[in-house]
């Protein structure tokens, strides 16, 4: 019967107004209200904290070890990132310099 006392909860907290919620650790509690009351002192005794989430572990979906292969990605997607557009800086420099060439200044 005591097994129902030991439900697993994951605890998240926010360090300051701007910070995202971050996973802290997990605890056992009989229900979510108790989990909340336990969470603060078990994991946030010292560090600042502006809010807490407790989430029942069985409500969380995650990828199994085998499924994590879906996270694979080729490194051919520079078009998604700024580094794919690195040449632009050089171009702009050239255009700016162009304005100050003798020919343009004499115009």
């Amino acid at each position: 019967m005591n097994n129902d006392f030991y439900e697993e909860y994951e605890v998240f907290s926010k360090r300051n107004q701007m910070a995202p919620f971050q996973h802290q650790f997990s605890l056992l509690a009989p229900n979510k209200e108790m989990a909340m009351v336990m969470a603060k002192e078990n994991f946030l005794r010292r560090e600042p904290c502006v809010n807490i989430w407790v989430v029942k572990k069985s409500d969380i979906s995650s990828l199994g070890e085998e499924e994590r292969v879906i996270l694979n990605r080729l490194d051919n997607k520079s078009y998604r990132e700024t580094k794919g557009y690195g040449y632009l800086k050089k171009k702009w420099r050239e255009y700016e310099q162009e304005q100050f060439t003798e020919k343009n200044l004499l115009k």
């Binding site: 006392f5 605890l27 056992l28 509690a29 009351v37 336990m38 603060k40 002192e41 078990n42 005794r45």
Partner: peptide, 11 residues
Amino acid sequence: PHIEEDVAFSS
């Protein structure tokens, strides 16, 4: 009664 509570009560 509970280890998590031990920590909370001590605070």
